[in-house]
Computed example of a mutant assay.
Amino acid sequence: MTIILDQTSKSFGSVEVLRALSLEVKPGEFLVLLGASGSGKTTALRMIAGLESVTSGRILIGSRDVTHVLPKNRDVAMVFQSYALYPHKTVFENIAYPLTVRKRPKAEIEKSVRDVAQQVQLDHLLERYPRQLSGGQRQRVALARAIVRRPSAFLMDEPLSNLDAKLRGHMRAELKHMQHELGITTIYVTHDQIEAMTLAHRVAILERGVLQQLDTPANIYNRPANLFVAGFIGSPPMNVLEGSLADGRFDCSAGSFGTASRASGRAVVAGLRPEDGRLAPPGQGQLAGEIYASELIGDHTLVTCRCGGATVTVKADKDFAGSIGQPIGIGFEERAVHLFDKASGERLQ
């Protein structure tokens, strides 16, 4: 089922939290709304669900304009961060609730609940109560309750944020597989870029209510639309160096190098992903600096260097043994450099 937001805005009094957001979620697509707190992503989700009114613009589910339609008539299922389970009902009763309120036949409810419970590996826990379950099991009950009535779309508001890191990784894989099997359009809200990059077919990045970029995870990572996206996506984030561009050559306090751009006479910011840099002996490479910190992560070492007035982090081999204060060079393939206009922050083509 297609979901369309057409120039959709939301204001609370004089505060505009979502500004003319337009996007189309394709049938069966897993779209992630990604942003920091206050970016407007949860407000957008709640507007699609009908839990928040629309200040201006339209929302369409399929070919139907649902801008002013009650939540119960939108045929979407929402999964909340807090699980929102009924503590006095068993797992079976919690999952069955959407069918029970619709007065479906008892035999149909029984079969549907048991089928979905098996799908999310809860079939042996149907007689338990939420208080007897782990966080991951409770989240699976919430998912099963959303799945059981086969809605047109799933709306998920940070459903994994209450889980520990190991369980979160497991549940990401479960969610991705489940959504693929069901083929139901899903809009997922998170502030976690790892969730966004691993789950989504496409990611919509929001900042202060404005859409910054809408694209596949690979394109967002490899061709960020602006400096905000470049700094928001990636762990550790992209290194940035301020300098000037003349005849396609970038100059800054830490060094100089050629670029693919032939532009001249403008202040720019050069971006370099940590994995695209390599450490070199002093005097070699395009940048000169000294080691500021070294952190063994496991399969690699993060080496942060002071280069002029900036810091540059490089992913080095796990056996790297440099010491703090040691002079160092940093080299890279010049085609790996991203260029942004300093004034606007927009990517230079």
Rank of each mutant, 00 (worst) to 15 (best):
I4K: 14
I4H: 07
I4D: 12
F12E: 11
G13L: 10
S14K: 15
A20T: 13
F30R: 06
L31D: 03
V32P: 07
L34T: 08
G38R: 11
K41N: 06
R46I: 03
I48D: 08
I48A: 04
L51G: 11
E52A: 08
T55R: 11
T55Q: 09
R58G: 01
I61V: 13
R64N: 12
D65E: 09
T67K: 12
T67R: 12
R74F: 08
R74Q: 03
D75C: 05
D75A: 07
I95R: 04
L99H: 08
L99E: 06
T100H: 01
T100N: 04
V101K: 06
R104N: 02
P105R: 01
K111H: 14
A117W: 00
Q118H: 05
V120F: 00
H124A: 10
L126H: 09
E127S: 14
P130Q: 11
P130S: 11
G135N: 06
G136P: 13
L143P: 01
A146T: 05
K166E: 13
L167S: 08
R168L: 09
G169Q: 11
H170L: 06
M171Y: 07
M171D: 09
H177C: 00
H180F: 01
I184M: 03
I184E: 01
I184S: 02
I187Y: 02
I187G: 05
H191N: 03
Q193L: 06
I194M: 01
H201K: 07
H201T: 13
R202E: 03
V203K: 05
Q213N: 11
P217C: 03
A218N: 08
I220T: 05
N222D: 15
L227T: 15
F228E: 09
F232P: 07
S235D: 08
D247V: 00
R249W: 02
D251Q: 14
D251M: 03
C252P: 10
C252Q: 06
A254I: 12
A254T: 11
G258K: 12
S261G: 04
S261F: 07
S264D: 08
E275D: 13
R278D: 02
Q286S: 12
L287W: 05
S294V: 14
I297F: 12
H300V: 07
G308F: 04
G309P: 14
V312L: 15
A316W: 03
D317K: 13
F320C: 15
G322P: 03
G325R: 01
Q326S: 13
G329L: 12
G345R: 05
